[in-house]
């Protein structure tokens, strides 16, 4: 692949890399795993980049490739070793932003989201990224009605976890 293509890809990825980080954050629970998945998503994005025609936004396209890699293609690498957990490190909720109750509630919520299955996580992720149900259904390959129904079930599930 030519240098120009590589350069434009790297430039776009650098700008939108948070999308990949956020997918990694939902599907992994430590730094090594995060980096490993980030690497695999980047490789998949790069492999598919020549097919990217620019008729959709690069970020929209990234959501699809990122989630597909996390849900379907990613095979946990053996080189990974369990190290530090995310909880309480990079993504800790800053005390000054929230009161105690809200902070605690958020911690429980993040923990609850991590316990969801891969498909539920994907729906939550797209929801958190402000995607409408049409886009969620197109990304997942399910009907819009089913996406809504599932999302409501997830909300109830989270509610139950938070208020047992």
């Amino acid at each position: 692949m030519n240098k120009e293509l590589e350069h434009s890809f790297v430039e776009l990825l650098e700008k939108h890399q948070n999308i990949v980080h956020k997918v990694c954050r939902l599907y992994t629970d430590n730094y090594d795993a995060h980096n490993d998945l980030f690497q695999e998503i980047t490789i998949q994005l790069w492999k598919a980049y020549p097919k990217f025609r620019g008729d959709s936004k690069f970020s929209t396209w990234m959501y699809r490739v990122g989630l597909n890699t996390a849900i379907t293609l990613y095979r946990k690498s053996k080189r990974r070793v369990n190290t530090q957990d995310f909880d309480g490190v990079e993504f800790r909720i800053k005390a000054e932003d929230y009161d105690d109750t809200e902070e605690q509630q958020l911690k429980t919520l993040y923990k609850a989201v991590h316990e969801l299955n891969d498909i539920e996580k994907a729906l939550v992720f797209l929801y958190l990224e402000d995607k409408d149900y049409r886009e969620i259904s197109e990304t997942m390959g399910i009907s819009e009605v089913n996406a809504r129904v599932k999302m409501n079930r997830i909300k109830n599930k989270l509610k139950t976890i938070l208020n047992p």
């Binding site: 097919k51 990217f52 396209w61 597909n68 379907t72 197109e138 997942m140 390959g141 399910i142």
Partner: peptide, 10 residues
């Protein structure tokens, strides 16, 4: 194709 929707890819 990695740019298909999740279900189709699977």
């Amino acid at each position: 194709c990695v740019i298909d929707n999740a279900k189709k890819l699977m």
